[in-house]
Simulated scan of single mutants.
Amino acid sequence: MSVRFTLVQLRYFVTVARLEHMTAAAAELNVTQSTLSSAIAQLEAELGVPLFVRLPRRGLRLTPAGHTLLARSDALLEEAELISRSVHEADPVLTGDLVVGIYAPLAPFRAPALLQQFERLHPGVNLVFLEGDQGTLQQALLDGRCEVALMYDLGVGEQFARRVIETIPPHIIVSERHPIAVSGRHEVSLSEFADEPLILLNLPHTREYYLGLFKLLGITPRLRHVSLGYETVRSFVALGHGYSVLNHWVDHGMTYAGEHVVPIRLSESLPPTEASLVRLKNLRPTQKSLAFESVCLGMVGDTAAASSS
């Protein structure tokens, strides 16, 4: 089937999809609302499917077909822009917006440094991070709200492609006043904590991963507190309310509570988590997202090598 939609129609569609409101999109594009409505209607007619559901007093929502088109539009529009600019520039620089999903517990450790390095190398690109849990990020990828996500491998569906950038083993954290921390030991067995209260990071998929570690060793942990916040867990531990099992290693130990935790390696060979760059399968990536991938692989790989040495 031959389709004859225009790049202008596609740009209009992407703007409407992002703002979910025809009037707001018309204002941003500096066109009349009737012009915009006509362009969207023509695009829907050419494709033979509705792209939006019109909700009275609530704006627009993408249909499944609209989500599919949005996910594939960025690469096409970027390529068209690069082709146009290559006529005048030998090596056209990347420009435009790039939304990258990032798993919330990873964001404080990775996002600021990645942003700094990416902006240094690609100042023409507006990089924005979308934080969320594993399920939220997968839905954002499906909806086209982000093109790539830096996240753990936990619960990632088969419709996604992953590129592993870091393997992160689990470890224990205890209060600096805990007898094991005071003793200066650098390695412990998880079974040593079977009778102590556990502070559990209770994010979707993450909870199952941590509890699964205990199950592998035949241990039933004594749950004391659960929390959705990574720093909340560390603060509970710092004040002596229990211990926790985490993956991302933090050397400094300072918590929001003003007290310190001590990370200690586990002697058991337990399954690690994998930090991965995740995309939809069979989706052509934009040059902007490939540039982010390159920065991410370099920075995270260097950091992982340094922390393991």
Score class of each variant (00 low, 15 high):
Y209M: 05
P50W: 13
P272F: 14
P271Y: 09
S38V: 14
G144V: 03
T286Y: 02
R85C: 01
R279P: 03
L51F: 07
V188W: 04
Q138S: 02
R11E: 02
V226I: 10
R279K: 08
V100K: 10
M299C: 00
L7Q: 14
L62S: 05
T273W: 10
L62A: 04
L98T: 01
S183L: 06
L213K: 13
D153S: 02
G253R: 15
L82E: 11
A104M: 03
R234Q: 13
G59E: 13
P197A: 03
W249A: 04
G184V: 08
P56L: 06
S189L: 09
L211N: 05
S309T: 07
V87F: 11
R222S: 00
S269G: 13
S309D: 10
H21F: 02
L200A: 00
L114M: 06
Q116T: 14
T23Y: 02
L154A: 02
E147P: 00
G242Y: 10
H225F: 11
G242L: 06
C296I: 06
L62H: 05
I180T: 00
A113K: 15
A75Y: 10
I264V: 03
G184E: 07
L297E: 12
H122C: 04
H21D: 14
S38F: 14
V87T: 15
A41W: 15
V31Q: 04
E158D: 10
A149I: 09
L10P: 01
S84H: 13
P56I: 12
R207V: 03
G258R: 12
L115E: 14
G101Y: 04
A104I: 13
A104V: 09
A304W: 15
V233T: 05
E46A: 08
Y256R: 15
F214G: 03
M1N: 08
L121I: 06
R222Y: 06
